[in-house]
Amino acid sequence: MSLLEIQSVSVSFGGLMALKRVSFALEEGEIVGLIGPNGAGKTTLFNCLSAFQPVSEGHLRYSGVALETLSPHQVAALGVARTFQTSRIFRRMTVLEHLLVGRHLHQRTDLWAAIARPAWVAREEAEARECGLRTLALFEDRLLPRLHDFAETLSYANRRRLEIARALASEPRLLLLDEPTAGMNPHESAGIVQLIKKIRHLGISILLIEHDMKVIMGVSDRIVVLDHGEKIAEGLPEEIRRNEEVLRAYMGRRYGRA
C-alpha cells in the first residue's frame, strides 16, 4: 500500500474545474515533485490534502485513512505537515515559539495541567525545546542565533525556513512543501535542495511543488505534471524533461510541435 494515494480527485469552484480526475500515488520515503504552469491546480491539490479544500469527487488515502472527511488539525495529527505558498508565520511569536507550536501534537498539557503544573509539564516543555533546537540545527546558523526574535523581524528567506522548521518539528511522515524556494536567490535555493535531502534522510516523504526546475530535477524521485487541473504526465525526471506534452504546456503549442 502506498503512503499517499490520490484517486481520481476532482475539485470544482462553481463551473471551473480546478482539478479533473487526478490520480497518482506517493510511496513511503519518496520525494515526488508536482509541477505545472500557474493555475494548474497544484496548490488546490495541497489544500485538499491538508483538508482546507473539500474534494468534489474522488478519494485521498493516507496510509489507508480517508483524508477527505477530516479537518485540518486531524490531518496534521496523522503526520501530514505542510508549508504555504505565501509563508504563514506567526509574526509576533519568537522563532523558538514556532518550534514549540510545531510540537503541539506531541504535547499533552491542557488547561488543568497548565494551571496545576505537575512535574511532567516542565519535562514536556524541556523536551519540546530540545527537539525544536535539534530541528533548527538542520538549518545551520540561519535560525539558531535568532531563537528569541519575533518572526516578523526575520528576512524573507528565513521566514520560509522557519515555516519548514515548524512543519518538521511535528515529526511528520509526509511533508507537503509549496514552493519552498519562491523568491529565493540561487544560493538560497541550493541550500533548500540540501535541506530537502537532509529531510529525506530523516525518513520523511515529501510532496514538493516547485517552479525552479533545477530544484525539482535535483531532488525528485518522480515528477507529476498538472496542467489546467489535469495530470498530463508522470515519470522520472529525465522522462519528464523530454516529454512533449509537458513542453507544450510550459512553452506553448508551437514549441511543442517543433
Binding site: 491538508s50 512543519a167 511535528s170
Partner: peptide, 23 residues
C-alpha cells in the same frame, strides 16, 4: 503554557495553527 501558545498561534494565523494540529 502550550495552551497559551495555541491562543497566540490562532491570533497570528489561524490556518497555520490548524496545520500545526491545533483544533
Amino acid at each position: 503554557s502550550r495552551v497559551g501558545r495555541a491562543f497566540m498561534a490562532i491570533r497570528e494565523d489561524e490556518l497555520a495553527a490548524q496545520s500545526a494540529g491545533i483544533p
